[in-house]
Design a protein around this nucleic acid. Sequence first.
DNA 1: TAAAATTACGTGAACGTTTACAGAGCCATT
DNA 2: AATGGCTCTGTAAACGTTCACGTAATTTTA
Lengths: 336, 336
Amino acid sequence: MAPVTLKDVAKVAGVSYATVSRALSGSPEISEDTRCRILKLCKEMGYTPNSIARSMVKRRTDIIGLIVPSLNNPFMSELTGQLEIYARNRGYNLMVCCSSYDHDLEKEVFALLVGRQVDGIIMIPGGNEIYESLSSLTSQVPTVFISDNLQDYPENYVCVDNFRGTQIATEYLYSLGHRDILYFGARQKSKTHKHRLEGYLATCEKLGLEPHVLPSSYSRSSREVGYTMAGDYFSKKNRETAILCAADMLAIGVMQAAFDAGIRIPRDISLMGFDNISFSALPQIDLTTINQPTQQMAIAAVDMLLDRIKNPEAEHARLILPPSLVERKSCRSIAK
Amino acid sequence: MAPVTLKDVAKVAGVSYATVSRALSGSPEISEDTRCRILKLCKEMGYTPNSIARSMVKRRTDIIGLIVPSLNNPFMSELTGQLEIYARNRGYNLMVCCSSYDHDLEKEVFALLVGRQVDGIIMIPGGNEIYESLSSLTSQVPTVFISDNLQDYPENYVCVDNFRGTQIATEYLYSLGHRDILYFGARQKSKTHKHRLEGYLATCEKLGLEPHVLPSSYSRSSREVGYTMAGDYFSKKNRETAILCAADMLAIGVMQAAFDAGIRIPRDISLMGFDNISFSALPQIDLTTINQPTQQMAIAAVDMLLDRIKNPEAEHARLILPPSLVERKSCRSIAK
DNA sequence: TAAAATTACGTGAACGTTTACAGAGCCATT
DNA sequence: AATGGCTCTGTAAACGTTCACGTAATTTTA
């Protein structure tokens, strides 16, 4: 518990503390002998550099703030894990804050992190209210968003190509012979979901399919929402042979409703999701879905942020990563 | 991007910077007028206190380090989320590091966090190698473990009562009429698993049941392990009517193997897990299990750590929280 | 009304680093 | 032998706070 400082080491070594600092920082302005001697002494004395003091003078902390809506959501917690590992490999630590999908909290923890002098912030917005506060937040500190909602704003962000995702999904279902595909759970307010819907609609048009859309009036894409909506849907006669859900969680709810209604997947109807959350890989679920490249997103977000930190005056960057098909057991090929 | 400091505010206000500091810290040694005037000015000028500088002189950072094996595991990411929220409510931020179940990394990030001058560390060990390094780590900074492996060491920890958990589970299965209960996936090296096994064995003895144990030679309790082990098990004739798994993930693997073998749960055999991870609540899984009180554990760990920070010389604390039964659909009552 | 107590504020040191600058010692060049 | 240029090390200021101390102005007390 006794904090041994540069000065302590310097005193024992019989040099000034600037010399010790030089020995540790790898400065060339020091002879090899003294460097070795000092380094050895540091070890012996159990010296640990105080990064607070260093931050004080260097005017940077090597800390990245992360604002994430929730760590209960597997997609976000996995992303968080990736971000932490990659950031640490690049010499940065992560200060994590959960916003609980609450925009006031988002602003509050943003200010908190700024006060903590983080070098930059990676933010996964929890909703759409973020637009109002965008510039007042990002003017304070370099910020990168992980979100598909920001095309029209001068901000840095990385996201997955949602349009392309539903395009891939629709084409896949088409290739299996499906001609009546229901797009399930289109949320109105989210731009992410708008792009997914558009990918579906555009592909329908390209393939000459008639689009069927079941919009969601809910503000989140939970299993419960999927279950409720699908219960309604299955209670009537329908001609669709496949359902493309706007999110995996919805699809899992749909699965349950299908089970309750005695409808078998994929025998009676094919089902696809979007996100590839870890749940979906469970054999009991085994959902064919569109993968978001979590690791790539994490790496890209950190890289982008560090670029912005190094060069804050640079143009805003955007990176849109390609999604990919994950083929599992929830879709089947049907006769034409 | 222009950092406005105490001095700037002081200059504009025409007072010394000590006065500004007093106005902000709520010191009584200042008149109400000047305080209001300064506070208003701070707002106008967009002043944010620099917590680095404050940490420098106060010799504390109000930061807690968290070392967690992985954020892919839902149990741990949920725990992390709870820790963050509660710690923030108590005025602390969380610096999170993933150890990837690697003990060398555990030691490395511990040192990193110490260098960052965190006020304390909450550590969820990823394995058993932790024993070797225990005292050399915890002598550096107040530390609280979340782990059931530390009864024999003078450390602070909180955990769930694993013995009680399997006791509850065994009694529950007994109450449903089961007399032949297999304990599935007992890991040898983990003390957590040792306690779970002991709870089962003790309860068998108490109830006059003959224990059946299927040990696991694997070092982790994954779905794949459960699937493989259960495949073997189901390929032979067995008399057990219920399986109690040492972890939910194992049970999910068992479910899959049962499905492959044409064995229906709970009709043909009852199945229980331990942990209550979020997967288990999915209707497609619907696993009866033993809950670990994540939120209570998080709150207790933070409270305990802050106690230790305030009073480092105090006796080591241990808190063992009660688990609880979560009744779902994977067990059935059988005729006696 | 003088002494004592109180209030409100300023002064300056401290926290543990980094770094610009200066300077000492040595060797090579003219 | 004087000058210049190295190489190495020391000095001191700075980063933005907090806080112990000092002190002037004001109020209270005897």
